[in-house]
Each structure stands twice: as C-alpha cells, then as structure tokens.
Amino acid sequence: MAKIKFTLNNKQVEIEKSPTARLLDILREDFDFTGVKEGCGEGECGACAVLINDQIVNSCIVPLGTVEGKNIVTIEGFSKTKRHEVLRNAFEEEGAVQCGFCTPGMLIASESLLNKNPHPTDEEIKIGLSGNLCRCTGYNMIIKAVKSASKKGDGLW
C-alpha cells in the first residue's frame, strides 16, 4: 500500500492502494470513471486509453505507482473540452461511432495524436490510431473524422 497523489480530470486526488494496481481499475472502480473501458486487459485494444501528461497510455497495464504527480485525463474529463467538441462533431458528421465501445479510446488517441501533430496526413492518422481496435466501423469514417477535426479545429491543437 502506498499513498499516491495525482491530478485526475483537473482535480487533485489521493488514493491509498498498491502501486501495482492497474490504473484502469482505480479509474473505473474507485473514481467511477467508467467511460474508460476494458476490452482486453493486455494493452492491445486501446479501449482503456487515457491521457497521462497529454500522451495516450493504455490504463489496463499502467501500474498506479507510476502516475504519482502526473496529470491524468479520462474521456469524462476530456469531454468537457473544446477539442472534444470539435472531435465529437466530426465523429458524428462522419458516422464514426457504432457500438461505441472503442470510441472513448479512439477520441483519446485522436487527441494525443493531434497534440503531437495538429495536421496529420491519412497515413499519420492511421499510425496514430493503430493501437485502438474497432470491430464495427472498418476505421474508414474514424480516419475521415480525425482528418476533418484537424481542419475544423485549426489552431486548437
């Protein structure tokens, strides 16, 4: 057990847990951020993606102890931002959401990508989202949505 402090969706939080606990479990069970999904538990699908210091990680394999002092944003926190609004509109307009289980992770991956590269090419989008599996959409509309968000949200990233 250890006391671990970090920022979660813009709030300072502290929790006493084993440092090897999966960040995913802490977010879903202790903080009730169930927008973070578990699709595989093996780092492969990206459904559990969150941002740590603006970068995407898969929370199912992040040990809690490594987030000490860091800034974590889940889909719940991200959804309150202007950038999410731009991405959200683009995803809706392109039809990029089907069952929605991959969607929080896809949006986090898009945010992380646009953070690094505000004007990605199709190829760069594909690389940026390559760790997020979607079984419904065939990705086509997701790729288009990210592209369109990067245009419409010019200056935001």
Partner: peptide, 17 residues
Amino acid sequence: RKVDSIIKMSGVAQYVD
C-alpha cells in the same frame, strides 16, 4: 446524426460492466 453517439462519445453510455 445518430441518436446515441453523444452518450457514447462522452463516456456516459452504460455498458453492462
């Protein structure tokens, strides 16, 4: 616009788990 996209994109849609 699909009627259920917003809740899915903001993470509030309730899946069984």
